[in-house]
Amino acid sequence: MTPSPTTLPTAGVDSVSVPGVTSVPTDALGWLIDRWSDLLSAVGNATGIEMLQYGFMHRAFLVGILIAVMAPLIGTFLVHRQLALIGDALAHTAFAGVAVGLFVNAVLDVGVSPYLTAVVVAMIAALAIELISEVTDAYNDVSMAIVLSTGFALGAVLISLNAGGLAVGINQYLFGNLATVSRSNAMILIGLFLVVTLVVGVTYKQLLYVTFDETAARVAGLNVPWYNRVMTMLTAMVVVGAMQIMGVILVAAMLVVPVAGAAQLARSFREALLASIILAELAVLVGITLSFQYEATAGGTIVLVAVALYVGAVLLGKVQSSRETVGDIHASAEERTAD
């Protein structure tokens, strides 16, 4: 179906099916989403919280909770490799992917979810960024900026070529929208979530080694370029997943802001991962609630909450480290005598 100017964005995306996914896993995911919905409805009825009585809010919370796990999970590795910008670059190429999806749907009259085309295009862009950096032997701001603007320009051109009906629905991709988290989009996100957490679970040690000390990792026999590619591909998946409620423009914030906050508080890498997920969950849950309450855009609200948490973490970190310094004076005096 083709979205027309009179179709609400919600309706335009809701009935889109997920092609290529066999019905068994789809049914299983659907069943899970239904049970989640039942649970939140029950909580809503018991507590009288109004927002929990809407189906789209159930899905928004589900998607938000999953994003708040996988975005900082990947973001922690990116930030500590000083690759925070890569999320932004991939988000803008994902926007081109959305435009491709909308274009194909309009021209061929099919119902491919724009998020699926976004995943494909963002993954291709991720590989391109990796290849560029391998050939030029460095990640640099310039190549990242070129990929970023190329993606956005391509998206803008495709959309304008197809003007009219398409331009209407584009806001939801730029800024995200709670109300457009359809059942099938929630399923796509669960799929992305499973892939991302599984891959990080299996390659955690290798990713950590490469992040901390790339040369030593190479000496230890790790195929560093390969892990870099895995990392950027996962970033592409996270970015597209999070785009649904965060929007293209703000999605990178989820990769960076909670991670930066956690780095202020954590001592170990595991603590940092955990703390960044907790901060992201807080930001998402509080952000979604506020955005429902005050009818503000969800992505923006979530980011503002995340930044507020970050500021809090910085202040707390300062208090912590000033306490530690007092302790360190004693400790280092002991060490000197020990040496």
Partner: peptide, 29 residues
């Protein structure tokens, strides 16, 4: 082979990671 380079922490100033976690990396291979 164990490899010790010039201090690498220049590149990872902000990275939260403990000494034990770094040393454990020796076990990863």
């Amino acid at each position: 082979v164990g490899y010790v380079a010039q201090d690498v922490t220049e590149n990872t100033k902000e990275m939260p990671i403990t000494v034990a976690e770094v040393v454990l990396m020796g076990r990863f291979p």
